[in-house]
Amino acid sequence: MFYGAMKLSVGSSLKLVFRPWAEGLENIPEAGPAILASNHLSFSDSFFLPAMLDRKVTFIAKAEYFTSPGVKGRLTAAFFKGVGQLPVDRSGVRGAGEAAIRSGLEVLERGELFGIYPEGTRSPDGRLYRGKPGGLARLALRSGAPVIPVAMIDTEKIQPPGKVVPKLMRPGIRVGRPLDFSRYQGMDTDRFIQRSVTDEVMYEIMRLSGQEYVDVYATAAKRQLAEAEKAEKAEKAEKGEQAEKGEQAGGDGGDGKGREA
C-alpha cells in the first residue's frame, strides 16, 4: 500500500514535470515474473521506469541508503522502500552479487518484476558498456523468467554530474520483446552460456537505445577516466610550480642570484 502511495506521488510528479515518453510497454506481461534488463545512464533511471509501468518493479540499491542515521536517513530509507528498492550490502563483490541474485529470485518467485542493470554501474559517458554475466544470466537461468530489454533515453542529460538543478526535458523509454532463455535451463554455472545470454541481451539494449557499444566493463572505464583525471591534475600542478619558479627567477633579475644593493 505504501508503495502504491509513493509511486502515485513520485510517478505523477515525474510525469507532470518531465513528460517522459515510452514505446513498447505492451511487451511487459500483465502478470507473472519477468526481468527488466536496462542500460544505466542516470540515478533517475530507477524512478522513471517504474513511473511508466502499471506493475510494481523492484530494483536493488546500496544498503547505505537504508541505514543512514538521523531524520534525513530515515526519510531516505522510507523513500527507497516506497519506490520499490531493496537494500543489498555491497561491501564484498562476490557477496554483493550473491545477495542481488537471492533478492531477485525472491521477487521473481512472488510473480513480480525485477529490474537489473547488466552494466553493473552507470555509464560514465553515455555509451553502452559490456554487460556483467554473473548476475543477469544466472538470475534468468535459475528463475526461468523471461528477460525484457529496456533502453533509457536521455536520462543522463537531465542532471549531468556537477549540476544541482535538473534540466526540464523529455526522457524516453523503449521496451523490447521478451527474450526466452529456457534452452539453457540447468546451465546457469557455465561461463560461456552466461556470456552468451548477457551478450544477447546487451545487443537488444544497444539496438533499442542507439548507443555506441564499448566492449569493456564500465567499472574499468571509470577507473581509466579517474586515473587520466588524476594524471591531468598532477600535470597542471607541475606546470603551475614550474611557472611559479620562473616568475621568482625573473624577479631576481633573471639569473637567480638577486640584485646587489
Score class of each variant (00 low, 15 high):
1 M>L: 06
3 Y>A: 06
3 Y>W: 12
3 Y>V: 00
6 M>F: 12
9 S>I: 05
9 S>Y: 04
14 L>M: 14
16 L>Y: 09
16 L>V: 08
17 V>F: 11
22 A>K: 15
23 E>Y: 09
24 G>C: 07
25 L>I: 07
26 E>T: 04
28 I>A: 13
32 G>E: 08
33 P>S: 14
33 P>D: 10
33 P>V: 09
34 A>N: 06
34 A>Y: 03
38 S>W: 07
40 H>L: 04
48 F>K: 02
48 F>S: 04
51 A>L: 05
52 M>H: 03
52 M>D: 08
54 D>A: 10
59 F>H: 12
63 A>P: 00
65 Y>N: 07
66 F>E: 10
69 P>L: 02
72 K>A: 14
73 G>N: 02
74 R>L: 11
78 A>S: 14
81 K>V: 01
82 G>T: 04
84 G>F: 04
85 Q>W: 00
87 P>H: 03
89 D>M: 00
89 D>P: 00
89 D>I: 01
92 G>C: 01
92 G>K: 09
93 V>C: 00
94 R>C: 02
94 R>V: 10
94 R>Q: 13
104 G>L: 04
104 G>D: 06
107 V>R: 13
108 L>H: 10
111 G>N: 10
112 E>F: 01
118 P>L: 11
118 P>K: 11
119 E>N: 03
120 G>W: 11
122 R>G: 09
122 R>W: 11
126 G>I: 05
127 R>N: 10
128 L>Y: 10
129 Y>L: 12
129 Y>T: 11
133 P>I: 08
135 G>Y: 01
135 G>R: 06
137 A>Q: 08
142 R>V: 01
143 S>V: 03
150 V>C: 13
151 A>W: 13
151 A>S: 03
151 A>N: 03
152 M>G: 02
153 I>V: 11
154 D>P: 01
154 D>R: 13
157 K>N: 11
157 K>H: 13
159 Q>L: 15
159 Q>D: 07
159 Q>I: 12
160 P>T: 04
165 V>T: 14
166 P>G: 04
169 M>L: 14
171 P>E: 12
175 V>D: 03
175 V>I: 15
176 G>N: 12
177 R>E: 15
177 R>T: 05
179 L>S: 06
180 D>S: 02
183 R>K: 13
185 Q>R: 15
189 T>S: 15
189 T>N: 15
191 R>T: 11
195 R>K: 15
197 V>C: 12
199 D>E: 15
199 D>G: 01
199 D>F: 11
199 D>T: 09
200 E>Q: 14
200 E>P: 00
203 Y>L: 13
203 Y>M: 07
208 L>E: 07
209 S>E: 09
209 S>C: 01
210 G>M: 06
211 Q>Y: 09
219 T>W: 05
220 A>T: 12
221 A>H: 07
221 A>Y: 02
223 R>Q: 12
224 Q>N: 11
224 Q>V: 04
225 L>H: 08
226 A>I: 05
226 A>R: 15
227 E>F: 02
227 E>Q: 13
230 K>W: 00
232 E>N: 06
232 E>R: 15
233 K>C: 00
234 A>L: 12
234 A>T: 08
237 A>V: 02
240 G>N: 13
241 E>S: 04
243 A>R: 12
249 A>L: 15
252 D>S: 14
254 G>H: 08
256 G>Y: 11
257 K>E: 03
258 G>W: 10
258 G>Y: 06
259 R>N: 03
